[in-house]
Design a protein around this nucleic acid. Structure first.
Lengths: 256, 256
DNA sequence: TTCGGCAACCAGTATAGACGGGTCGGACCG
DNA sequence: CGGTCCGACCCGTCTATACTGGTTGCCGAA
């Protein structure tokens, strides 16, 4: 038989949790306690440890490799990778988690929270009809009381109740959404730069015209529904993003 | 046996070309002629078309999914994805290709090309000993004669001959390196912002202090050797990067 | 005509086994 | 003592098969 009808494979919400997921989580936890360069179990080790076939074990490992947490070296083994110096642009973790990961103390100041009709741009980003109502949450995010980001989140009205009830100064907006049953999963970001407006400058403690790193994200939930569009504005000298990239195969020049 | 000892499986350099690679390239070409939302062959179709097992076909498809070219929808099929508006931060393609993709005419102006000892920062980025010699190529990249990027590439000395011989104003630096046997494959980028220096401003046609998007890349070849470190400085209003991201799994509980 | 159910598809997950080529340490030989 | 070769390991690739759950279109019954 193949997938054992093992009842413990179901999560709280009743979804089936694949075997590779358990292995992935176990490895993720194990990596926490290791240092870069340390060796991880081989494919064969994982097979016997978790009682799965090699393809299944490799599936779990492959995900961590793509995430950049570990590297596979053919003929030698699998090793813990060097962590990036900044937040990875292709991962999104809550501001609080990210700052704590870097040993800093996060805090937030709520600047505004309101329901209003969406602008044309906002409606387009979330795939709404023009001027359909949205919830806006605007926060100043700090680390060790130093302003790091000016963040404006625009959220679809269906989750208004959860957003308005949440403690967005001390808790995570995404955690509040998750509790309301909206599990955010993937998204697309556009990264650019801009000059600080007078308001940016005042809130972030800069001078007008100072360079900002601007990240615009549209985040969708598990079912692909666009839930949130956020703009984060970071002072250039306090924030950067890392990303791993592949060189486009030059072979017979595939472009796009 | 399993992998047929098919002699056509070897590339010009003698590497074995996996089956999934051929399928990947075939699909990549096919996608060119399709529009977003179009359906691609199912796993089963690919199996019979290319005469491989399903795991192999899926391997090829999975790579394109990760690249964001296509999306898989369980129960329905695989579809061409919406292309990003800007260059994807997690792909690197030559400046010329990228501009042509957007229907613009690329050109370059060579500002400097020299061999000199590396600075401490440069040596660290490339993993060299301090002040080991490097080749520096500095170019102004334009589209339709509008300056788009100020690019400074720092390259290890082993490839100096190829770099000095290359026509870097009309040809691609990476193509020159590829002809010399150095196949660049992966890298890490750090994305930030900065204010234009007087020199930036002069070359890019900006005012001093205007915001720039700054991308610093370290690129390695197929064997993991770091070959090139490049800094690109883009005027904020003429360039942006796109990236797809995953939301970090909510620490402890895996739900979803 | 509409609605319910079924069959055909389709991707997701999983098994078990196999060969290839790279890496590395130890045994063996000169 | 040094160099070479071999075998143990390990990742990369590939085959063949199978069950699950979601989607869709079609057909027949109400």
């Amino acid at each position: 038989m193949t997938a054992p009808a093992d009842s413990a494979r179901r999560s709280a919400e009743g979804h089936v949790v694949p075997y590779w997921r358990r292995i992935e989580l176990a490895l993720r936890a194990r990596i926490e306690g290791l240092t870069p360069g340390d060796r991880l179990p081989s494919d064969a080790d994982l097979c016997s440890e978790f009682g799965v076939s090699r393809m299944t074990a490799r599936n779990a490992v492959t995900r961590l490799v793509e995430e950049g947490l570990i590297v596979r070296v053919s003929g030698r083994g699998t090793f813990v990778a060097e962590p990036p110096a900044h937040r990875r642009a292709d991962r999104l973790l809550t501001f609080s988690h990210e700052m704590r990961r870097r040993g800093r103390v996060p805090s937030s100041r709520l600047l505004a929270r309101e329901i209003r009709p969406s602008s044309a741009t906002e409606a387009a980003a979330l795939g709404l009809r023009a001027s359909e109502p949205i919830v806006v949450v605007r926060r100043l995010r700090c680390a060790d009381d130093e302003p790091i980001a000016l963040e404006t989140a625009v959220i679809i009205q269906s989750v208004a109740a959860a957003v308005l009830a949440a403690d967005v100064e001390h808790g995570s907006l995404h955690e509040a959404l998750a509790r309301a049953g909206w599990h955010l999963r993937r998204g697309t970001a556009t990264i650019g730069a801009a000059a600080a407006s007078p308001e940016d400058a005042r809130l972030l403690g800069l001078r007008r015209g100072d360079p900002l790193l601007v990240e615009r994200r549209v985040i969708a939930d598990t079912h692909g529904r666009r839930v949130e569009a956020t703009e984060s504005r970071y002072p250039a000298d306090r924030y950067a993003l890392d990303v791993q990239f592949d060189v486009e195969p030059d072979t017979d020049r595939e472009t796009r």
